[in-house]
Amino acid sequence: MLAYIATRVGRAIFTIFLVLTFSFTILAATGDPALLIMSVDAPPEAIEAFRERYGLDASVWQQYIGYLGNLLQGNFGQSLRDGRDAWDVVVERIPLTLALTVPAFLLKIGIGIPAGIYAALHRNSFLDRLVMMISVAGYTVPSFVLGLILILIFAVNLGVLPSGGQDTWRHAILPIVTLGTAGAAIIARYTRSAMLEVLGQPYIRTARATGVPWPKAVRRHALPNAAIPTLTVVGLMVGSLIAGAVVVESVFSWPGVGRLLISAVANRDLMIVQAILLLVAVCMVTSNLLVDIAYGLIDPRLRGRSGSRKT
């Protein structure tokens, strides 16, 4: 088990390093932020001074080494806009984003998993079909469309909820529902198909033939085995807690990390973009790592084995 975890952690660190390098290279290749931020008709001396101040006059290679060196010391660089520490700018937005994504995540699990299990256990019943129909609708409608529809209904027509901003908890309701719907739909589908797959396995039939009562066969054999594939999807959703609300935050003018990312990209505020990308990468990789470790705990076949998974 230790070797298993060690390999996974090693890979996770390598993945983050790759993300860093790629994002740095691509951002460096897309043009000179000095020209955009200082405006094109600024005097050449001022642009030169700006470049010097933020180290943009060095070669890309030197900038990269310098950036990595700073990172290792916990320095994420400064915002090119107001010179504040990039990390501070990002971190102050995180609680706002989490205020949307965490309740939405609970909503996804709380609705998706029970709905999926119910649908699988009552396969082809009316409710099964209803659940699956809603779930197809839930994940095919893009979140910005769903968001606008909800605004139209609850803010414009009924006037019961605000359409955007983040002054009170009531402002959070529509974004949370918007975020939660698609996720719940996806989880419901995955849970249902995982359950159906497991319920069709010979060991369930064997358990029944042995005299195991149905509810017990479901609890003891079906649910734990169906949990394995479901966990993958849920794990990926944990990874998107920070970055998953970019679109929805824009629709509802919610000042979280997602909107910061959009404005930073528009303003070519390189260090902010880099800091957010790094944060997102770390979240994704960590959640994948946790899923991998959880796999090892749930599925004995993976224990004590590093590297390739055997099915």
Binding site: Q201, T206, G211, N225
Partner: peptide, 23 residues
């Protein structure tokens, strides 16, 4: 269910007939 005690079954695929998660 009571009759299950007295009649049991063995299937073709022993790996499939066992839950992989339990000893």
């Amino acid at each position: 269910r009571e009759q299950r005690r007295r009649m049991q079954m063995v299937y073709q695929d022993p790996l499939g007939a066992l839950d992989r998660r339990l000893p």
